[in-house]
Simulated assay, not measured.
Amino acid sequence: MNRAEREATVRRILEQRPPQVPTELYEEAVRRGGRMLRRRTAARRLMWLVLAVAAVAFTVWALTARPWVEPPSQTTPPVTGW
């Protein structure tokens, strides 16, 4: 089958009337699509919740540990008795 024959076959297929879809198939597709959307919504909400909890945990850790403050030097003893 050369290119011209393939193109002619494709044109014939595309010009035909599309087949009727059974109503049960449509209802099943709608049901599955709704379930898929609910799962995606639940997963998205769960990811936002995990992100929010991680942000709060990081903030609490940063405020208690204060990692930006340089620790006191331990190389020289404190000066007393001046």
Rank of each mutant, 00 (worst) to 15 (best):
E7Q: 11
E7I: 05
A8D: 05
A8M: 06
A8P: 00
A8R: 12
T9E: 14
T9V: 04
V10L: 14
V10K: 05
R11S: 09
R11H: 05
R11W: 04
R11Q: 12
R11Y: 03
R12W: 02
R12V: 04
I13V: 06
I13K: 07
I13A: 06
L14G: 00
L14E: 10
L14V: 02
L14Q: 08
E15K: 03
E15H: 01
Q16R: 14
R17N: 11
P18F: 07
P18L: 13
P19F: 02
Q20N: 09
Q20I: 04
P22Y: 08
T23G: 05
E24T: 14
E24F: 10
L25S: 09
Y26Q: 13
Y26K: 13
E27G: 00
E27T: 01
E27P: 00
E28N: 10
E28Q: 15
A29I: 15
A29R: 12
A29G: 11
V30D: 09
V30S: 03
V30W: 01
V30F: 03
R31L: 15
R31E: 15
R32S: 13
G34Y: 05
G34M: 09
G34L: 09
R35L: 11
M36G: 09
L37R: 11
L37I: 07
L37K: 12
R39D: 04
R39E: 07
R40L: 08
R40D: 02
T41N: 03
T41V: 11
T41Y: 01
A42E: 03
A42R: 01
A43T: 06
R44Y: 06
R44N: 07
R44V: 08
R44P: 00
R45P: 00
L46M: 05
L46D: 01
L46Y: 00
M47S: 12
M47I: 01
M47Y: 07
L49N: 05
V50D: 02
V50W: 12
V50R: 14
V50G: 08
L51G: 15
L51D: 02
L51A: 15
L51Y: 02
L51R: 12
L51I: 08
A52R: 11
A52V: 14
A52N: 09
V53P: 02
V53R: 00
A54H: 01
A54W: 01
A54Q: 02
A55E: 04
A55K: 09
A55R: 08
A55F: 07
V56Q: 00
A57L: 15
F58P: 00
F58K: 00
F58A: 14
F58G: 11
F58H: 03
T59S: 13
T59L: 14
V60D: 00
V60I: 15
V60S: 03
W61H: 12
W61P: 01
W61A: 14
A62T: 12
A62Q: 06
A62W: 14
A62K: 10
A62H: 10
A62N: 09
A62M: 13
L63T: 12
L63A: 13
T64Q: 12
T64A: 10
T64N: 09
T64H: 09
R66C: 08
P67F: 04
P67M: 04
P67N: 06
W68I: 06
W68M: 13
W68A: 14
W68K: 11
W68N: 13
V69A: 12
V69K: 10
P71D: 03
P71I: 12
P72F: 03
S73L: 03
S73T: 06
S73K: 08
Q74T: 15
T75H: 14
T75E: 14
T75G: 06
T76S: 08
